[in-house]
Design a protein around this nucleic acid. Structure first.
Lengths: 150, 150
DNA sequence: AATAGATCGTCACAATTGCAACTAAATTCA
DNA sequence: TGAATTTAGTTGCAATTGTGACGATCTATT
């Protein structure tokens, strides 16, 4: 039985609120980089990054990994294809499936952006100090451990 | 000069990605509560929570505090007003301004939801352990300290 | 006091997103 | 085998969100 204390909610202390604001702030800064330099949207960047990391994937797999709705992925794939940054190939065994892969132009962009991402992260971490970095990573790990199973 | 190593980006280790996924997962769980029980959208919940915490505010102030676009706030205020959870009053001194305040029905809903929020947070924290909790909070604090000024 | 510029909140319109239906193909199972 | 169900990906439509322009009001400058 929980105490019925009617405490007000202090948003600045409320974890979902803090997490959201932090994620939002960090994401927006990073997004402005790939938006300004490459004209990429968030779904497009995520698709590029996922393919860059894993090589050949289906649209469904991309969506599952980056928790994007399948229509979002479908549209991002379409745009990247128009840009000739990725190519599709129908699977020979299961012909519902499309195997997606970055083209060499796509890999080039990915490599550049991966580098930018590493630099961005390093810059961010440098402001947290080694202590803050360890705490943040450990805290996130604890959270991930929980909601990845429960 | 940064080393030109062309390392691939491991999304699972990339901080913006991890922060986003964590925030997303937590938010969605909490959102499903206020959505299912009260039919509130995210902007509406945020508006309610901000007003509940601070008392009387203008729409602009709500937007600034919860980092919502002013049209989003405008629409959330409209909906909450229709629901009779908040009331507007033109400011006598500056007549561009509307002073927004929760009605008693609004305060009642807020009180209930604040309680639910506390319970939700406690439940979440209980899964992190005292160690994980401290780390997460310290890590977030470090992050907030950085991007609140820079 | 009058003009210029800023601010508050809203609205029309455009872009983005999500949902549901759809086609095509594979799988299940009677 | 073949009918029913499931899965992959796309598309049309509806809901949500963001952009820019607007009227009203306030502030600053002269």
């Amino acid at each position: 039985m929980t105490a019925e204390t009617t405490q007000p909610l202090i948003l600045e202390d409320f974890l979902p609120y803090r997490l959201n604001k932090a994620a939002e702030a960090v994401s927006q800064r990073f997004a402005s980089i790939y938006r300004d330099r490459y004209g990429l949207t968030r779904p497009e960047w995520r698709t590029l990054a996922t393919l860059g990391q894993f090589g050949i994937l289906t649209a469904t797999a991309i969506g599952a990994h980056s928790s994007m709705h399948k229509t979002k992925v479908s549209r991002a794939v379409f745009t990247l294809e128009k840009r000739r940054w990725l190519s599709r190939k129908r699977d020979d065994i299961d012909r519902r499936i499309e195997n997606l892969e970055l083209t060499s132009a796509g890999r080039k962009a990915y490599t550049e952006l991966a580098n930018v991402a590493h630099i961005f992260e390093a810059e961010l971490l440098s402001h947290l100090g080694k202590r803050g970095e360890n705490e943040l990573k450990a805290g996130l790990a604890a959270l991930e451990k929980y909601y990845n199973q429960a």
